[in-house]
């Protein structure tokens, strides 16, 4: 699946990534278990949109994320990679407090959005989630019409008062999600009737209809075929002009293609954050290198 999408675009980056993989093949397996001490690279930026310090996440007794410090800049695309079960989704879900829905989940540390502590006890999560939208791994359109799927968010947040305004929001959201031309004649048919890729773009349209500032994406392409994946990746590039995007992906090629910075997680620790080019050509940490050269994952 990745191979094909890879051929479509960004061959450049991958080619530059491969030699380094070959070079470092000699690193022994003992390097993989190298002690993780803090985060190497550039986790901090000057004008952070989201500022996270000392984030620990527990599921009951079990800790899933360990003392993560990370800044996310306005209008950047940051991707999070790492072996499965390393806490990427858990960490991502902290940013709009989706972990609140899991009873046993507990979050420590501070996360600030534009200087506002989002874990403050009195904070209402409803407006927060309107500012920080989320796209999930499996496309999950509501069992409503395409129109109503997109109109759902603006309606519950009272963003529009007139029907004509709502029509406009729906159309522009679908356009920005690259879905308008495919569905404009059947806005009344159910969203669940679309193909997987279309459903995922519908979910993206649904998210941007609320005009969030940040969009979190948790493996948005893992259920899609290569062509649909390529479309979503293109879309992410366009969206980054207006939104701050944090994307979890299991595909390193995808991270390389869409993101400005890449964060590598390992067993709940944030090991390395760097410019994407650097992570894939000359990573600072041995674990990162071992992962991107495919020695585990």
């Amino acid at each position: 699946m990745i191979k094909m999408a890879e051929d479509v675009k960004d061959e450049q980056k991958m080619q530059s990534a491969e030699p380094s993989a070959a070079e470092n093949d000699s690193a022994g397996p003992q390097d993989m278990s190298a002690k993780i001490q803090g985060t190497v690279g550039r986790p901090f930026v000057d004008d952070a949109k989201i500022k996270m310090r000392g984030v620990n996440v527990f599921y009951g007794e079990k800790q899933a994320v360990f003392a993560v410090d990370l800044d996310i800049k306005e209008n950047e695309v940051i991707s999070m990679i790492g072996p499965s079960g390393c806490g990427k989704s858990t960490f991502l879900r902290c940013i709009n407090r989706m972990n609140d829905t899991i009873d046993i989940c507990r979050v420590e540390g501070s996360i600030q959005l534009d200087g506002m502590d989002i874990y403050e006890s009195k904070l209402d999560v409803v407006p927060l989630r309107a500012r920080v939208g989320m796209v999930f791994q499996k496309p999950n359109p509501f069992p409503k019409s395409i129109y109503d799927n997109v109109a759902y968010g603006p309606k519950i947040h009272g963003l529009v008062s007139r029907k004509s305004d709502l029509d406009e929001v729906v159309e522009s959201s679908l356009r920005r999600a690259g879905l308008w031309d495919e569905v404009k004649d059947r806005l009344d048919s159910p969203g669940t009737g679309l193909s997987g890729g279309q459903q995922q773009r519908l979910c993206i349209a649904r998210t941007i209809a609320v005009s969030p500032e940040v969009i979190l994406m948790d493996e948005p392409c893992s259920a899609l075929d290569p062509i649909a994946t390529a479309k979503i990746e293109e879309l992410i590039a366009e969206l980054s002009e207006n939104f701050t995007i944090a994307i979890v992906t299991h595909s390193m090629q995808q991270a390389a293609r869409v993101s400005h910075r890449t964060a590598y997680f390992h067993l709940g620790n944030l090991v390395e954050v760097n410019e994407t080019d650097k992570v894939f050509t000359n990573p600072d940490h041995d674990l990162t290198e071992a992962y991107i050269t495919g020695r585990f994952g």
């Binding site: 829905t101 999560v125 409803v126 939208g133 999930f136 519950i156 649904r206 609320v210």
Partner: peptide
């Protein structure tokens, strides 16, 4: 996932 989707939109 449907509930998550709705909650994620700020419902």
């Amino acid at each position: 996932s449907l509930r998550d989707g709705a909650l994620g939109l700020g419902s």
